[in-house]
Design a protein around this nucleic acid. Structure first.
Lengths: 241, 241
DNA sequence: CGTTTATTTGACGCGGTTCAATCAGTGTGG
DNA sequence: CCACACTGATTGAACCGCGTCAAATAAACG
């Protein structure tokens, strides 16, 4: 019995969690080893193609998830089809509306995505028994609120030029948080021109025109429509308004 | 000693808290009686004129507050002065960025406002000793995130007409959550035309024109620039896009 | 009542949408 | 291997919703 408990304490991190970023920077970092083991038993990994719908608007909330790889797009649509992307989530973000009745957004895989899916009941039970977990999720929620409010400024008050620059700057600093302002950054766009438009409140044509303009100015270089290289991050930042 | 503890348990609600909505619908509702007493000792009431700055952007976070009366406007500004209102807070909302280093928004009194101010350390200590309090604040944060995302749709994808209708609908349902769709609602605008414009990502002239149009159509009536009566809520809702 | 500030209304121009054509990249079948 | 279709991106031209500038009107205040 004592040996068994010791075994549990000393047991290695579950196979599923070995290479998972959520254990380091995400919510799983606050779990006790035995909680991690217990949680891992309730979860499963799920892979989705780009474009797959992960969460449907106005559906019951049955499970939550951690993003292990890829980019997830959160969006809302009006009855007539107009769409607005209200958030992007990267590993190791937590996915899902905690304590809600039904989902208020649609979540789609923007790229190929790997999720660690956890049933609603399992996570909520763990939250009540470990306040540190709720605290960690609170921190992410507060960060998402900050990001949403930053984006409201972009949506409400910036020009098309500034919106596109802000979007590129957002991706650049996100994929390389330590990027110096003088350095050049290289990354792949996780969204199509149409999705970028839906994120920025623009049409895809306007997005394309502004990207072309940035290219003509030498601020960015684009290969294969998706590979972006930002020559001078400071120059880009100056265009963000 | 036992008598003293009994006294504390049975003691009436602190004077300060008697008529406070935060005790019923806000965060103070989850506090144990003695926690409420202890918290009340650390807090003070503060009254502010309309227009007063309650929280400055990029300032140290020294205290949090509950809105007891009035409306608080959260906004962000770009270097060149363009402004975006990113949130409105009503009693008994919690005010302030929990666990942050510095404030990322400016908070201004939109109307005359009464706050219950609590020092940062006092609240954060209470949070660590009472997980229910963090849970309650988590619920509000999640609700604010939902609202921010709803508003992103309005900012990014709606026309001026739909934006103004959405704003009026927001106020109407907020001041009377039980309002029937067929009923008429009456309220006072907490914001000037200019502030409404900053909330909607429009100019004050456009806001004014759209309000005039709604008035010509008989959807609303306006007295003294601020008193609004919505004849048919369903009609207004249909204009929200 | 005069002054000041907030709101309304009008005229005009521009930024971004709409509609349409072209181009580039990719996969498919002959 | 090439022709073809198909999807996504770019570019152009015309239009229009909203911003800008300016003036008139209404409300608030001493």
């Amino acid at each position: 019995m004592a040996a068994e408990r010791k075994d549990i304490h000393n047991s290695d991190v579950p196979m599923l969690c070995r290479s998972c970023e959520a254990r380091h920077r995400g919510m799983c970092g606050v779990l006790e080893p035995e909680q991690l083991v217990a949680l891992a038993r309730a979860t499963h990994k799920a892979r989705h193609e780009a474009g797959a719908e992960l969460i449907g608007d106005s559906t019951q909330i049955r499970s939550y998830a951690n993003v292990m790889r890829g980019v997830v797009k959160l969006s809302k649509v009006l009855e007539d089809g107009r769409q607005q992307v209200v958030g992007l989530q990267f590993a190791p973000d937590f996915l899902g509306r905690l304590f809600g009745h039904e989902n208020a957004v649609t979540a789609q895989a923007a790229s190929e995505v790997e999720l660690c899916v956890v049933p609603r009941a399992a996570l909520e039970a763990l939250i009540t028994q470990n306040p540190a977990l709720e605290h960690k999720l609170m921190q992410q929620t507060l960060r998402e609120l900050d990001e949403a409010r930053d984006w409201m400024v972009t949506l409400g008050r910036k020009t098309a030029q500034e919106k596109v620059a802000s979007f590129l700057y957002l991706l650049a600093t996100h994929c390389d948080p330590s990027a110096e302002l003088s350095a050049s950054v290289r990354f792949e766009l996780p969204l199509s021109r149409s999705d970028i438009g839906d994120f920025l409140g623009l049409t895809l044509e306007t997005v394309s025109r502004q990207i072309s303009k940035l290219r003509r100015w030498g601020v960015i270089e684009v290969a294969n429509n998706r590979q972006v290289e930002i020559a001078d991050l400071a120059r880009l930042k100056a265009l963000c308004g």
